[in-house]
Protein backbone atom coordinates (compact mmCIF):
# COMPACT_ATOMS: atom_id res chain seq x y z
CA UNK A 1 0.00 0.00 0.00
CA UNK A 2 1.05 3.56 -0.61
CA UNK A 3 -0.09 5.65 2.31
CA UNK A 4 -1.38 9.19 1.90
CA UNK A 5 0.48 11.73 4.00
CA UNK A 6 -1.60 14.48 5.54
CA UNK A 7 0.64 17.42 6.34
CA UNK A 8 -1.84 20.01 7.53
CA UNK A 9 -0.66 20.15 11.12
CA UNK A 10 2.37 22.03 12.29
CA UNK A 11 2.83 20.26 15.60
CA UNK A 12 2.46 16.79 16.93
CA UNK A 13 -0.82 14.96 16.48
CA UNK A 14 -2.77 14.25 19.62
CA UNK A 15 -5.84 12.47 18.36
CA UNK A 16 -7.34 11.07 15.15
CA UNK A 17 -10.74 9.54 14.65
CA UNK A 18 -13.23 8.68 11.95
CA UNK A 19 -16.84 9.67 12.11
CA UNK A 20 -19.48 6.98 12.46
CA UNK A 21 -20.05 6.65 8.71
CA UNK A 22 -16.34 6.47 7.99
CA UNK A 23 -16.25 9.22 5.35
CA UNK A 24 -14.60 11.93 7.45
CA UNK A 25 -11.38 11.85 9.41
CA UNK A 26 -10.96 14.28 12.30
CA UNK A 27 -7.54 15.13 13.63
CA UNK A 28 -6.42 17.13 16.61
CA UNK A 29 -2.97 18.52 17.12
CA UNK A 30 -1.00 20.71 19.47
CA UNK A 31 -1.17 23.47 16.84
CA UNK A 32 -4.64 24.68 17.95
CA UNK A 33 -6.44 23.82 14.68
CA UNK A 34 -8.56 20.69 14.57
CA UNK A 35 -8.97 19.54 10.99
CA UNK A 36 -11.38 17.41 9.02
CA UNK A 37 -10.22 15.37 6.03
CA UNK A 38 -11.89 13.23 3.45
CA UNK A 39 -11.29 9.68 4.60
CA UNK A 40 -11.29 8.37 1.03
CA UNK A 41 -8.99 10.80 -0.73
CA UNK A 42 -7.12 12.48 2.09
CA UNK A 43 -8.17 15.95 0.93
CA UNK A 44 -8.37 18.58 3.57
CA UNK A 45 -12.00 19.63 3.81
CA UNK A 46 -11.77 22.18 6.54
CA UNK A 47 -10.27 23.45 9.76
CA UNK A 48 -11.99 24.61 12.91
CA UNK A 49 -10.28 27.86 13.81
CA UNK A 50 -10.68 29.47 17.18
CA UNK A 51 -8.74 27.65 19.85
CA UNK A 52 -5.84 29.36 21.60
CA UNK A 53 -4.10 26.25 22.86
CA UNK A 54 -3.21 22.69 22.00
CA UNK A 55 -6.20 20.51 21.20
CA UNK A 56 -6.06 17.31 23.20
CA UNK A 57 -9.19 15.50 22.22
CA UNK A 58 -12.22 15.71 20.00
CA UNK A 59 -15.40 13.81 19.45
CA UNK A 60 -17.88 13.92 16.62
CA UNK A 61 -21.45 12.90 17.23
CA UNK A 62 -23.01 9.92 15.53
CA UNK A 63 -24.80 11.92 12.83
CA UNK A 64 -21.67 13.93 12.04
CA UNK A 65 -23.36 17.26 12.63
CA UNK A 66 -21.54 18.56 15.69
CA UNK A 67 -17.94 18.28 16.78
CA UNK A 68 -16.61 18.82 20.27
CA UNK A 69 -12.99 19.75 20.85
CA UNK A 70 -11.08 19.86 24.11
CA UNK A 71 -8.27 22.33 24.32
CA UNK A 72 -5.52 23.38 26.68
CA UNK A 73 -6.86 26.96 26.52
CA UNK A 74 -9.37 25.81 29.17
CA UNK A 75 -12.28 25.69 26.77
CA UNK A 76 -14.32 23.05 25.12
CA UNK A 77 -15.85 24.19 21.86
CA UNK A 78 -18.69 22.82 19.85
CA UNK A 79 -18.53 23.21 16.08
CA UNK A 80 -20.77 22.72 13.12
CA UNK A 81 -19.00 19.87 11.33
CA UNK A 82 -19.98 20.90 7.81
CA UNK A 83 -19.38 24.63 7.93
CA UNK A 84 -16.66 24.95 10.55
CA UNK A 85 -18.65 27.55 12.50
CA UNK A 86 -18.34 27.65 16.23
CA UNK A 87 -21.64 26.78 17.89
CA UNK A 88 -20.77 27.29 21.54
CA UNK A 89 -17.84 27.61 23.91
CA UNK A 90 -17.81 25.98 27.32
CA UNK A 91 -15.31 27.58 29.70
CA UNK A 92 -13.41 25.46 32.18
CA UNK A 93 -11.06 26.26 35.03
CA UNK A 94 -8.18 24.17 33.73
CA UNK A 95 -6.93 22.69 30.47
CA UNK A 96 -9.53 20.37 29.00
CA UNK A 97 -8.02 16.96 28.49
CA UNK A 98 -10.84 14.90 27.12
CA UNK A 99 -14.34 15.17 25.75
CA UNK A 100 -17.03 12.65 24.86
CA UNK A 101 -20.55 12.79 23.48
CA UNK A 102 -23.26 10.92 25.27
CA UNK A 103 -25.36 8.42 23.38
CA UNK A 104 -28.03 10.29 21.46
CA UNK A 105 -25.94 13.49 21.35
CA UNK A 106 -28.01 15.30 23.99
CA UNK A 107 -25.25 15.64 26.55
CA UNK A 108 -21.48 15.45 26.77
CA UNK A 109 -18.77 15.21 29.36
CA UNK A 110 -15.33 16.74 29.68
CA UNK A 111 -12.27 16.19 31.83
CA UNK A 112 -10.25 19.18 32.97
CA UNK A 113 -6.80 19.09 34.48
CA UNK A 114 -5.92 20.80 37.76
CA UNK A 115 -4.77 24.40 37.28
CA UNK A 116 -3.78 26.88 39.97
CA UNK A 117 -6.30 26.25 42.75
CA UNK A 118 -8.81 24.45 40.51
CA UNK A 119 -8.90 20.72 40.99
CA UNK A 120 -9.20 18.10 38.28
CA UNK A 121 -12.81 17.78 37.34
CA UNK A 122 -15.21 15.76 35.28
CA UNK A 123 -18.10 17.89 34.05
CA UNK A 124 -21.27 16.76 32.38
CA UNK A 125 -23.15 19.27 30.21
CA UNK A 126 -26.59 19.14 28.68
CA UNK A 127 -26.89 20.34 25.12
CA UNK A 128 -30.21 19.42 23.52
CA UNK A 129 -29.32 19.88 19.87
CA UNK A 130 -32.91 20.60 18.81
CA UNK A 131 -32.99 23.81 20.88
CA UNK A 132 -30.90 26.88 20.19
CA UNK A 133 -27.39 26.94 21.70
CA UNK A 134 -28.15 30.18 23.58
CA UNK A 135 -30.68 28.36 25.73
CA UNK A 136 -28.12 25.82 26.91
CA UNK A 137 -26.80 26.25 30.37
CA UNK A 138 -23.15 27.26 30.49
CA UNK A 139 -22.84 25.55 33.84
CA UNK A 140 -22.38 21.81 33.87
CA UNK A 141 -25.23 19.62 35.01
CA UNK A 142 -22.86 17.70 37.26
CA UNK A 143 -19.28 18.21 38.38
CA UNK A 144 -17.26 15.36 39.81
CA UNK A 145 -14.14 16.42 41.65
CA UNK A 146 -11.33 13.96 41.30
CA UNK A 147 -9.34 12.87 44.37
CA UNK A 148 -6.72 15.47 45.14
CA UNK A 149 -4.47 13.59 47.53
CA UNK A 150 -2.47 11.42 45.08
CA UNK A 151 -2.84 13.85 42.17
CA UNK A 152 -4.21 11.38 39.67
CA UNK A 153 -5.30 12.80 36.36
CA UNK A 154 -8.02 11.49 34.13
CA UNK A 155 -6.95 10.74 30.57
CA UNK A 156 -10.03 9.58 28.69
CA UNK A 157 -13.73 9.24 29.13
CA UNK A 158 -16.61 7.49 27.41
CA UNK A 159 -20.33 7.21 28.12
CA UNK A 160 -21.51 3.66 28.69
CA UNK A 161 -24.72 1.78 29.41
CA UNK A 162 -27.00 4.21 27.57
CA UNK A 163 -25.59 7.23 29.39
CA UNK A 164 -25.98 5.69 32.83
CA UNK A 165 -22.29 5.37 33.52
CA UNK A 166 -19.21 7.35 32.68
CA UNK A 167 -16.09 5.34 31.98
CA UNK A 168 -12.90 7.20 32.89
CA UNK A 169 -9.26 6.13 32.61
CA UNK A 170 -6.56 7.56 34.85
CA UNK A 171 -2.84 8.13 34.74
CA UNK A 172 -2.24 5.75 37.66
CA UNK A 173 -3.40 2.82 35.51
CA UNK A 174 -6.89 2.57 36.91
CA UNK A 175 -10.34 2.80 35.36
CA UNK A 176 -13.39 4.05 37.23
CA UNK A 177 -17.04 3.92 36.35
CA UNK A 178 -19.02 6.90 37.62
CA UNK A 179 -22.72 7.24 38.08
CA UNK A 180 -23.80 10.18 35.91
CA UNK A 181 -26.54 11.27 38.30
CA UNK A 182 -24.79 11.52 41.64
CA UNK A 183 -21.15 11.18 40.63
CA UNK A 184 -20.44 8.17 42.80
CA UNK A 185 -17.88 5.57 41.80
CA UNK A 186 -19.76 2.50 40.66
CA UNK A 187 -16.81 0.29 39.92
CA UNK A 188 -13.07 0.46 39.74
CA UNK A 189 -10.40 -1.76 38.23
CA UNK A 190 -6.67 -1.31 37.90
CA UNK A 191 -5.52 -2.99 34.72
CA UNK A 192 -2.20 -1.21 34.39
CA UNK A 193 0.62 -0.16 36.63
CA UNK A 194 1.31 3.06 34.76
CA UNK A 195 -0.59 5.75 32.92
CA UNK A 196 -3.36 4.67 30.57
CA UNK A 197 -2.79 6.68 27.42
CA UNK A 198 -5.87 5.79 25.52
CA UNK A 199 -8.88 3.57 25.47
CA UNK A 200 -10.93 2.54 22.50
CA UNK A 201 -14.07 0.51 22.12
CA UNK A 202 -15.28 -1.69 19.35
CA UNK A 203 -18.26 -0.49 17.37
CA UNK A 204 -20.79 -2.38 19.48
CA UNK A 205 -19.19 -1.21 22.73
CA UNK A 206 -18.80 -4.76 23.97
CA UNK A 207 -15.02 -4.77 24.17
CA UNK A 208 -12.50 -2.12 25.02
CA UNK A 209 -8.76 -1.99 24.77
CA UNK A 210 -6.55 0.13 26.97
CA UNK A 211 -3.07 1.19 25.99
CA UNK A 212 -0.59 2.05 28.65
CA UNK A 213 2.88 3.38 29.29
CA UNK A 214 3.64 0.05 31.01
CA UNK A 215 4.22 -1.34 27.43
CA UNK A 216 1.06 -3.43 27.30
CA UNK A 217 -2.39 -3.09 25.85
CA UNK A 218 -5.21 -5.00 27.49
CA UNK A 219 -8.51 -6.16 26.13
CA UNK A 220 -11.49 -6.11 28.47
CA UNK A 221 -15.10 -7.11 28.40
CA UNK A 222 -17.33 -4.08 28.93
CA UNK A 223 -20.15 -5.69 30.85
CA UNK A 224 -18.21 -7.65 33.43
CA UNK A 225 -15.06 -5.52 33.26
CA UNK A 226 -13.26 -8.80 32.87
CA UNK A 227 -9.71 -9.00 31.60
CA UNK A 228 -9.54 -11.02 28.38
CA UNK A 229 -6.22 -10.54 26.62
CA UNK A 230 -2.90 -8.81 27.00
CA UNK A 231 -0.74 -7.60 24.12
CA UNK A 232 2.86 -7.16 25.16
CA UNK A 233 5.31 -4.91 23.35
CA UNK A 234 8.70 -3.42 24.06
CA UNK A 235 7.64 0.21 24.09
CA UNK A 236 5.07 2.48 25.71
CA UNK A 237 1.78 1.96 23.91
CA UNK A 238 0.08 5.22 22.99
CA UNK A 239 -2.99 3.94 21.24
CA UNK A 240 -4.62 0.68 20.29
CA UNK A 241 -7.69 -0.01 18.20
CA UNK A 242 -9.79 -3.06 17.45
CA UNK A 243 -10.38 -3.87 13.81
CA UNK A 244 -14.11 -3.83 13.01
CA UNK A 245 -14.16 -6.78 10.63
CA UNK A 246 -11.09 -8.81 11.47
CA UNK A 247 -9.88 -10.22 14.71
CA UNK A 248 -6.94 -7.89 14.72
CA UNK A 249 -5.58 -5.27 17.06
CA UNK A 250 -3.54 -2.31 15.84
CA UNK A 251 -1.03 -0.90 18.30
CA UNK A 252 0.86 2.34 18.00
CA UNK A 253 3.55 3.63 20.23
CA UNK A 254 7.18 4.41 20.59
CA UNK A 255 9.41 5.97 23.11
CA UNK A 256 8.15 8.98 24.96
CA UNK A 257 8.64 12.20 23.06
CA UNK A 258 11.45 13.30 25.37
CA UNK A 259 13.91 10.59 24.36
CA UNK A 260 13.11 10.59 20.65
CA UNK A 261 15.81 13.03 19.67
CA UNK A 262 18.49 10.83 21.15
CA UNK A 263 17.67 7.76 19.10
CA UNK A 264 17.63 6.96 15.42
CA UNK A 265 14.43 6.43 13.51
CA UNK A 266 15.18 2.75 13.07
CA UNK A 267 15.61 2.04 16.74
CA UNK A 268 12.74 4.30 17.70
CA UNK A 269 10.07 1.65 17.32
CA UNK A 270 7.67 3.99 15.62
CA UNK A 271 5.77 1.29 13.75
CA UNK A 272 2.16 0.29 13.87
CA UNK A 273 1.98 -3.25 15.15
CA UNK A 274 -0.67 -5.75 14.14
CA UNK A 275 -1.69 -8.31 16.72
CA UNK A 276 -4.12 -11.14 16.49
CA UNK A 277 -6.95 -10.44 18.87
CA UNK A 278 -7.34 -13.98 20.16
CA UNK A 279 -3.85 -15.44 19.98
CA UNK A 280 -2.11 -12.29 21.21
CA UNK A 281 0.60 -12.83 18.61
CA UNK A 282 2.18 -10.04 16.64
CA UNK A 283 2.06 -10.80 12.94
CA UNK A 284 2.65 -7.54 11.15
CA UNK A 285 4.46 -4.24 11.29
CA UNK A 286 3.88 -1.08 9.28
CA UNK A 287 6.69 1.45 9.28
CA UNK A 288 6.79 5.02 8.16
CA UNK A 289 6.62 7.52 10.99
CA UNK A 290 9.57 9.48 12.29
CA UNK A 291 8.17 9.86 15.76
CA UNK A 292 6.12 7.85 18.20
CA UNK A 293 2.56 7.24 17.07
CA UNK A 294 0.23 9.15 19.33
CA UNK A 295 -3.08 8.23 17.81
CA UNK A 296 -4.55 5.48 15.70
CA UNK A 297 -7.94 5.08 14.14
CA UNK A 298 -9.35 2.42 11.90
CA UNK A 299 -12.09 3.14 9.40
CA UNK A 300 -15.41 1.56 10.39
CA UNK A 301 -15.32 -0.38 7.11
CA UNK A 302 -12.00 -1.93 8.15
CA UNK A 303 -10.31 -1.09 4.83
CA UNK A 304 -8.11 1.76 5.90
CA UNK A 305 -6.53 3.18 8.99
CA UNK A 306 -4.95 6.45 10.00
CA UNK A 307 -2.04 7.02 12.33
CA UNK A 308 -0.96 10.36 13.73
CA UNK A 309 2.43 10.82 15.28
CA UNK A 310 4.64 13.14 17.21
CA UNK A 311 6.29 14.09 13.88
CA UNK A 312 3.14 16.02 12.92
CA UNK A 313 2.18 13.73 10.05
CA UNK A 314 -0.96 11.72 9.67
CA UNK A 315 -0.55 8.71 7.47
CA UNK A 316 -3.66 7.33 5.88
CA UNK A 317 -3.17 3.68 4.93
CA UNK A 318 -5.46 1.78 2.61
CA UNK A 319 -5.05 -1.93 3.09
CA UNK A 320 -3.99 -4.08 0.16
CA UNK A 321 -6.40 -6.64 -1.12
CA UNK A 322 -4.04 -9.31 0.16
CA UNK A 323 -4.59 -8.11 3.72
CA UNK A 324 -8.34 -7.91 3.28
CA UNK A 325 -8.46 -11.44 1.87
CA UNK A 326 -5.95 -12.75 4.33
CA UNK A 327 -6.87 -15.66 6.50
CA UNK A 328 -5.70 -15.32 10.03
CA UNK A 329 -2.51 -17.12 10.90
CA UNK A 330 -2.85 -19.82 13.48
CA UNK A 331 0.14 -20.03 15.78
CA UNK A 332 1.75 -23.21 17.07
CA UNK A 333 0.14 -25.29 14.39
CA UNK A 334 2.35 -28.03 12.96
CA UNK A 335 4.32 -26.43 10.18
CA UNK A 336 3.37 -27.55 6.73
CA UNK A 337 5.84 -29.57 4.74
CA UNK A 338 7.53 -27.40 2.21
CA UNK A 339 6.50 -28.60 -1.20
Amino acid sequence: MRPILLKGHERSITYVNYNYDGDLLFTASKDNVPTVWSANTGERIGTYNGHQGAVWDLDCNKFSTHLLTASADATCKMWNVETGEEVQTFKHRGPVRGVAWGEGSQCFATISDPFMDAVAMISIYDCPLDSSPESWSQAPRLEIELPKENAVKATNLVFLNLNEALFVTFDDGSIRLYDVVNGKVLNMITPHTKKINNVSFNREKTLFITSSVDTTAKLYDVVKLEHLKTYKTDRPVNDAVISPNKEHILLGGGQDAMSVTTTSGKAGKFETKFFHLVYETEFGVVKGHFGPINALAINPDGRSYASGAEDGYIRLHFFDQSYINMKDPVPDAPTEEAN
Binding site: M1, R2, P3, I4, L5, L6, K7, G8, W37, T41, G42, E43, R44, K273, F274, E282, F283, G284, V285, V286, K287, G288, R315, H317, D320, Y323
Partner: peptide, 15 residues
Protein backbone atom coordinates in the same frame (compact mmCIF):
# COMPACT_ATOMS: atom_id res chain seq x y z
CA UNK B 1 -1.12 19.28 2.31
CA UNK B 2 -2.11 15.88 1.02
CA UNK B 3 0.55 13.89 -0.75
CA UNK B 4 0.79 10.29 -1.71
CA UNK B 5 3.80 8.56 -0.31
CA UNK B 6 6.34 7.63 -2.94
CA UNK B 7 7.38 4.35 -1.38
CA UNK B 8 5.24 1.32 -1.09
CA UNK B 9 4.73 0.29 2.50
CA UNK B 10 4.02 -3.35 3.19
CA UNK B 11 2.86 -5.04 6.31
CA UNK B 12 6.11 -6.66 7.28
CA UNK B 13 6.36 -9.81 9.26
CA UNK B 14 8.10 -9.28 12.58
CA UNK B 15 8.99 -12.96 13.01
Amino acid sequence: VTIQSRDVITIEDPN
